[in-house]
Write a protein that binds this DNA or RNA. Structure first.
Length: 155
DNA sequence: GCCAACGTTGGC
DNA sequence: GCCAACGTTGGC
């Protein structure tokens, strides 16, 4: 069982869009970064939990928890010439990009904001999102960081 | 293989 | 809108 943090811009796909999706389930498509691709393809397992993080918005932070319900499979948006995330270099017989399916486990009662996390940065030595220059849209979260972060919801 | 130019991310 | 940081591209 692994833990993750998955970023999304709410203006593109936020927690409310996920909550409105059929079965509250969505394909996490459009990843075009090799490090993140490797996590999607090789490391994310059914049942893993992830923080759903809003980035590039007024109040960046964790807004919910999602669960992986389908492990890595080829990202079909890469094959669609009309799609925004089309990649001519991804051959259906040898897909370059992968995605997983996630389902909304629950929204947080109140977001755990980036500001809050930064204030307590000393408590989260391994949290990649707090490191300078981190730009990966999916990052692993250690079990101990996960547990400490969850506690902030009721703090 | 080097590295400058360019594109993207994301907080502010 | 700015800009630091980082990934990717492509000429050499």
């Amino acid at each position: 069982m692994n833990y993750w943090l998955m970023k999304s811009e709410p203006s593109v796909f936020g927690i409310d869009a996920l909550a409105a999706a059929r079965g509250k389930r969505s394909a996490w498509d459009g990843v075009r970064n090799y490090q993140v691709r490797n996590m999607l393809r090789d490391q994310m397992k059914k049942g893993d939990l992830a923080f759903f993080y809003h980035s590039s918005c007024e109040v960046p932070g964790i807004y919910g928890i999602v669960r992986v319900v389908k492990e890595g499979y080829p990202d079909s948006t890469a094959f669609d010439a009309k799609h925004h995330h089309y990649d001519a270099g991804s051959d259906p017989d040898k897909p370059r990009w992968y995605m997983v399916d996630v389902v909304l486990e629950r929204k947080l009662r109140a977001p755990i904001t980036l500001e809050t996390l930064k204030q307590r940065a000393a408590s989260f030595p391994e949290l990649l999102i707090l490191r300078r220059g981190n730009r990966l849209s999916i990052t692993p979260v250690s079990l101990s960081d996960w547990q400490r972060i969850i506690k902030l919801e009721s703090a």
